[in-house]
């Protein structure tokens, strides 16, 4: 079983990395980019039957820092 964890900065948390990417895109001549936020994708290969509660606990205890980040779990077969 695979799960993909998307970790993103909460709204209102400054993202210097996203801002640098934004500037670089503009430097390449791409107009019309309103904003850029950078995040992380963590792919987990899990034993079948791993509970949703366990995956959620992994996110809360380590994969995301919930002071500054949100996470979203996407499970694939």
């Amino acid at each position: 079983m695979k799960a993909r964890i998307f970790v993103t900065l909460k709204g209102g948390v400054l993202d210097p990395q996203g801002r640098a990417i934004h500037h670089a895109l503009e430097g390449l001549g791409f107009g019309g980019v309103n904003d850029v936020r950078a995040g992380k994708l963590i792919e987990l290969d899990l034993a079948d039957g791993t509970s949703d509660e366990d995956i959620d606990a992994m996110c809360r205890k380590l994969l995301a820092n919930t002071v500054i980040e949100n996470y979203r779990i996407e499970k694939a077969a």
């Binding site: 993202d15 210097p16 640098a20």
Partner: peptide, 17 residues
């Protein structure tokens, strides 16, 4: 210490990058 919860808050990338 912030990551372990002994202190509140978090330390982000410097604003200037």
């Amino acid at each position: 210490l912030t990551e372990s919860g002994l202190l509140p808050g978090a330390l982000l990338r410097n604003a200037g990058g």
